[in-house]
Simulated scan of single mutants.
Amino acid sequence: MPRNARSEREALTDLMQTLGPDAPTVNEGWTTRDLAAHLVLRERRPDAAGGIMLPPLRGYAERVRLRIAARPWSRLLNEVRRPPVWSPVSNPVTDELANTMEFFIHHEDVRRASPDWLPRDLPAGLSAALWKRASGMARLALRRFPAAVLIQAPGHGEVSAGRGGDPVRVVGAPGELILFLSGRQRVSRVQIDGPAALADRLRSAHLGM
């Protein structure tokens, strides 16, 4: 049975423990403490977790997140490492589906904030799981982009997205494409082929869910 979500959770928690609560992340303005609080809110506060995606609830969610962030660092890390079994997103039924991409992205948010980061060689099972998410994510993240965008992961497949028009091709490993499509273009290692203006626009577009 796949354990990608658990492996990424453990690796992220170990890394945050090593770096401490004040280390930078790829998320602008967020430290590792802020990121840990986000993860705890998402799993343990369903009353506020909707604010992660829904603008009307964002203010409430942020107030809750700041209160969580004030907890002792050791407690925060323990809460990230050991999610409650009752959590809608982290119980044994939903964990792999809901958390593989989430924890991969945030693991890389911490890793790639270091100036000497290098890409990882991901296990084949994790790459396959990330490609499944990337292929669907592309259609959503690029639904308004004014071009015909072809997303390609060599050895995994390709998917078309965008509103049509001039063609642009984005090529990369599944993990790199996940980061690109989640709005982390500046730290993702992909190749973009197409008209220069469209390629530049794609690199700076506001992507993500």
Rank of each mutant, 00 (worst) to 15 (best):
R81S: 06
A129E: 09
P92L: 09
E62N: 14
R81L: 06
D116N: 14
P146T: 10
P115V: 09
K132S: 15
G59S: 14
P115W: 03
L118W: 09
R67E: 12
D109H: 08
V171F: 12
L122F: 08
E96A: 05
Y60W: 11
M137D: 12
A98N: 06
E43R: 09
V93L: 12
W131E: 02
G155V: 00
P92K: 11
I68C: 03
V171N: 15
V64S: 02
F104H: 07
R44I: 00
V171H: 14
R139I: 03
T94K: 02
L54T: 11
P167V: 10
P84I: 00
F104K: 05
L41Y: 13
G175S: 09
V110I: 10
P55Q: 11
A98T: 00
P115G: 11
R65Y: 01
P115L: 04
T94R: 10
W86R: 09
R133D: 15
I105C: 08
R81M: 03
L41F: 06
R143Q: 10
A69C: 08
L41H: 11
E108S: 09
M53P: 04
P123L: 07
L77K: 09
A48R: 05
V171W: 14
F103C: 02
S114M: 13
W73G: 00
G50H: 01
E102S: 04
W117C: 06
V110H: 04
I52R: 05
E102I: 01
L76A: 06
K132M: 13
R58A: 14
Q152S: 15
R169K: 15
Q152K: 15
Y60Q: 10
R81N: 06
R63K: 13
L76D: 06
R81C: 00
P56N: 06
E79Y: 00
V168T: 04
G59L: 11
F103Y: 13
R67I: 01
L118F: 09
P115S: 08
G51E: 02
P174E: 03
L41A: 14
A161L: 10
F103H: 11
V89P: 04
R45M: 10
G157V: 07
V170Y: 14
L66F: 07
K132L: 15
E79Q: 14
A48M: 08
L122N: 09
L130I: 03
R44L: 10
R120T: 10
E79F: 00
A141G: 05
L130W: 04
A148W: 07
S114Q: 15
A134C: 11
R81Y: 00
R45H: 14
I151D: 07
G59C: 09
G125F: 01
P92D: 12
A161K: 06
R163E: 14
P154H: 02
E108I: 05
A69I: 07
L54N: 13
